[in-house]
């Protein structure tokens, strides 16, 4: 439009640049360079790959890494299976006057925050918790089942804190799906399964992809659920990073681990975007 940028443009540009450069670009570059710094035997800081080597040499680190990746993908798929019917029900099945209230109920646990809800699950699942008490009252079991501090309780916690973030993008995709498409298919004798597979799923893929990416990112970077609900055997990679920073104070190695986590999460997200033909810009909206 204009050749010379107006002063207003710079007034808008400068604060945004400061935000992005100082708080996003520099810290992550710093983390990247820091991950190659290593204190040698003479106490000097040198360039080295040792921080990454220790990750591969110590079995517990890369096993945790692989486990975190696999569990995160698993929880994401589980979240899709659990919440897709809910998103469908709220947009296509339930009467409109109820749906907005039911959607509101979905938002409440999100705003209450992860720590409180995970704590609630801790009480529910513990040995003298609500579920065990209930099962013993009705005589289904004689002694408490150990549910807390297992992979099971950790999965429940991760699912609970992340799945609601998937419903909203799926709902906005479903809302734009014209009911008459489903009606037409049904009139032509398509079964529910065919309608589901050939119309609903292809149409809502963008919503599923952005919801799935958000869930995956939240799960893989979570610390609270694995730490409070997971036991000794269910280590999460973020816990390793936490230990490097706040327990053993080996920040350079922690930086390497942080970079590996960033690489893992962005790698899988990139792959998911490629497979579904989406763009990151769409995920945000």
């Amino acid at each position: 439009m204009k050749k010379n940028k107006s002063s207003t443009f710079f007034l808008l540009m400068v604060p945004v640049l400061l935000w992005l450069v100082l708080l996003i670009v520099i810290p992550h570059l710093d983390m990247f360079f820091r991950s190659f710094r290593f204190e040698n035997d003479e106490g000097l800081m040198v360039f080295s790959l040792n921080n990454y080597l220790s990750f591969f040499e110590d079995k517990i680190y890369w096993l945790t890494f692989v486990k975190t990746a696999l569990y995160s993908i698993g929880v994401t798929i589980l979240a899709f299976i659990v919440t897709f019917p809910v998103a469908f029900f709220l947009t296509k099945v339930v009467a409109k006057k109820y749906s907005s209230f039911m959607v509101l109920l979905l938002l409440i646990p999100i705003w209450i925050g992860e720590l409180v809800t995970i704590y609630g699950w801790m009480i529910l699942l513990s040995d003298n918790g609500v579920i065990n008490n209930f099962l013993m009252q009705i005589g289904l079991i004689d002694s408490p089942i150990v549910m807390l501090y297992t992979n099971f309780s950790m999965t429940i916690g991760l699912l609970y804190m992340s799945m609601l973030f998937m419903i909203i993008p799926m709902m906005s995709a479903l809302e734009s799906l014209d009911d008459s498409l489903i009606e037409a298919a049904s009139d032509l004798g398509a079964s529910k399964w065919t309608i589901f597979r050939q119309i609903i799923i292809p149409y809502t893929t963008p919503g599923i992809a952005s919801g799935g990416i958000i869930v995956f990112m939240l799960v893989i970077g979570d610390y609270v659920a694995p730490n409070i609900l997971g036991g000794k055997s269910s280590l999460w990679f973020t816990e390793q990073i936490y230990n490097k920073f706040l327990a053993t104070f080996n920040w350079n190695e922690g930086a390497a681990f942080g970079f590996l986590l960033l690489l893992l999460s962005s790698g899988i997200i990139w792959l998911a975007l490629k497979l579904t033909g989406q763009k990151l810009e769409k995920v945000g909206s």
Partner: peptide
């Protein structure tokens, strides 16, 4: 949106 919160914390 796609950087894990832990990574954002340690890098800053």
């Amino acid at each position: 949106l796609v950087i894990p919160g832990v990574v954002l914390g340690i890098s800053i």
